[in-house]
């Protein structure tokens, strides 16, 4: 019997496959295609203190093997989440994790405190890496001081599993990872989208209303792998790898580099069944290769 289970902080997941925030809605959008409960966990949309309309259309541009988005954290706010969405999420038996976003420390705290009280939300993912909001967001994730400050503050207000999601738009991702670990994060996830841009030659205008946006999809996988590998070598807490994963093979590459779990993002748009397919294919790979648990392969990259 293959045992794919992994631990992320206090969270025990039946397998390492999670879905990435902003690419999986609230899970409901995928009920027609897969059994959401077959996944290790799902991470729902970025949730902020106040409702946000997000950025103006156009918010998406397709690019070679990827896409740029500038959604800008459109969501109805934490109070609406608690009153209207949370009750509907109770049907899921798998872990539901909320991605917490904001532009001020007080806002992150407000949201984290509300989520701390929700029994069926066992963890939060702190998004200090969103490139698509004007103030805050990514700003917290691009300096060691602010990353430490916000992680510490939220750690105090939140007792359950705290995952901090890092931005790739930094000079040294390991420096940020280390301060976030020291500040009390239970786990680190990376990468968020890479800041990018698309231009329409005919109109001589940027494609996105915000000019720049966040790049995701297979195009960013090499960067993501590199950063996950570096961070895994720099911290002790579990690392959740993501960025361009389209298959179990991709997921295993992240695990080889040291990731304890993975998140599936943009791939959900191409094939809404992909997350479940990856769970199945991981099982097959483990069986074929006589692997008993994730630890048999995690971090076993041969570099010399």
């Amino acid at each position: 019997m293959v045992d794919l289970s992994v631990n992320i902080g206090k969270l025990r997941m039946r397998n390492p496959v999670m879905t990435a925030s902003g690419t999986f809605g609230y899970g409901f959008e995928f009920d027609d295609f897969i059994d959401v409960d077959s996944l290790g966990a799902i991470i729902v949309k970025g949730t902020t203190r106040e409702a946000r309309e997000g950025n103006a259309y156009p918010r998406m541009a397709e690019t070679p093997m990827g896409m740029l988005n500038a959604v800008g954290l459109q969501n109805k706010g934490i109070d609406y989440f608690v009153s209207d969405i949370y009750p509907r999420l109770l049907k899921y038996k798998t872990h539901v994790i909320v991605n917490v976003s904001g532009s001020k420390i007080e806002d992150y705290l407000y949201v984290a405190e509300k989520l701390n009280d929700l029994e069926s939300i066992p963890a939060i993912e702190l998004n200090i890496s969103c490139p698509n909001v004007k103030t805050g967001g990514m700003a917290f994730g691009t300096s060691c001081d602010s990353a430490a400050e916000i992680t510490k503050a939220v750690r105090k207000a939140y007792d359950k599993t705290l995952i901090v999601k890092l931005s790739p738009n930094v000079t040294s991702v390991t420096d940020i990872a280390q301060v976030v670990e020291d500040a009390g994060a239970d786990a680190i996830s990376l990468i968020n989208t890479i800041m990018g841009m698309a231009v329409d030659l005919d109109s001589r205008k940027p494609v996105l209303s915000t000019v720049t946006g966040g790049l995701s999809g297979p195009a960013i996988k090499p960067v993501a792998l590199r950063m996950v590998w570096q961070v895994c070598n720099a911290v002790k807490v579990p690392v959740i790898g993501l960025g361009g994963i389209m298959s179990a093979k991709d997921a295993l590459e992240f695990i080889l580099c040291g990731a304890t779990a993975v998140q599936i993002g943009t791939a959900n748009f191409i094939d809404p069944r992909i997350s479940q397919t990856i769970v199945r294919d991981l099982n097959t790979y483990f069986e074929k290769n006589n692997l008993k648990s994730i630890d048999d392969i995690r971090g076993t990259l041969i570099t010399s």
Binding site: G22, T23, F24, G25, E29, F30, K45, E53, G54, Y57, P58, R59, M60, A61, E62, M67, N69, V71, Q74, T266, N268, F269, P272
Partner: peptide, 22 residues
């Protein structure tokens, strides 16, 4: 018609301004 990434309501890329917001 506008630019869509998922077509199933998961990405929020395809918004239009309506009386009830995006």
């Amino acid at each position: 018609e506008n630019t869509m990434a998922c077509g199933i309501g998961a990405c929020l890329c395809c918004v239009v301004n309506t009386k009830n917001g995006h």
